[in-house]
Design a protein around this nucleic acid. Structure first.
Lengths: 151, 151
DNA sequence: GGACGACACTTAGCTTAGCTAACTAATTAC
DNA sequence: GTAATTAGTTAGCTAAGCTAAGTGTCGTCC
């Protein structure tokens, strides 16, 4: 019975996927260091990010986006509300629903943090040549397409 | 006083960094869905991953890698030990230090989870043409280099 | 070679983040 | 107009984060 050893080379598709997966993890782990300056916990920062970029969202939307249950998101949001970073209003048309959106303060806080991360990444990318830059630009467009695809 | 508007185009370096950052986040958020099948919490899964790939590590190494404090990692590791996924042994040369390594079971569990993520990503990457594949391969090598760089 | 500081981790005790189960209120379906 | 469904919340638990303080081990230095 043929057994697949750990050292066996993987087929080309999975091998690239493996490397992309690993590279993405290491990239973001590196940038995460900058987040402590925001003063927010990782779950709150992540939820705030979705609220800022996805515009007014419902609590259910948020819970799905963050892959947590509704009660968890309910408490995260009330923490963000108390901190003055977001506002939650009942939808007048369907009063079960909340419309959650960022305040100016929330948007500013998130944007400052995102800038720290991006600046750090931009500094790291300075190691690349102009030609490599062009290749990376193409690749990023592909990753965006793949990562946002329907299913 | 010239004010930078939100709609202003960013300079080329930061703009690529911004897009790469966002693409990496969306890529991993998408793959994270697969992790529930492992039965482990995200922090434990992440710690196990470092243990499996970085070989025997100390608790301090792990805490630094995961960007948490020692007491947090201490409890994560004892959870993994109780679950039979890792083994922690005192270093005979310096008995303050632990050498933490994965068991066969731990390695198998992590590998199964990683495979689910990678297979999902590989399936997503099938949308790309052969030419795009080659570009992506080049870009991944660059990202690996950048993400592992010293500082 | 004994005292002392530093180091690696653990314990205690707190807050936040995750969950399920059960509840409330609003809407939709019949 | 009653029943079922949907959106969130509350209660109550475990896990994960922190700081402060404790334990044992090592290195140093006189």
């Amino acid at each position: 019975m043929p057994r697949r050893d750990r050292q066996d080379p993987l087929p080309p598709g999975p091998e690239l996927a493996t490397r992309l997966h690993s590279a993405a993890i290491h990239l973001l782990r590196r940038l995460r260091v900058e987040d402590s300056a925001s003063g927010l916990s990782a779950p709150r920062l992540s939820a705030l990010s979705v609220i800022v970029f996805a515009g007014p969202v419902t609590l259910g939307d948020l819970a799905r986006a963050e892959q947590v249950r509704a009660p968890t998101m309910s408490r995260l949001v009330s923490g963000l509300v108390k901190a003055g970073l977001v506002i939650a209003e009942r939808d007048p048309a369907d009063r079960r629903i909340q419309r959650i959106r960022a305040t100016t303060k929330g948007r500013a806080l998130l944007e400052a943090g995102r800038l720290r991360r991006v600046r750090r990444l931009a500094r790291d990318l300075d190691r690349l040549s102009a030609a490599e830059f062009r290749v990376l630009r193409e690749a990023v467009a592909m990753i965006e397409r793949v990562a946002r695809a329907e299913r």
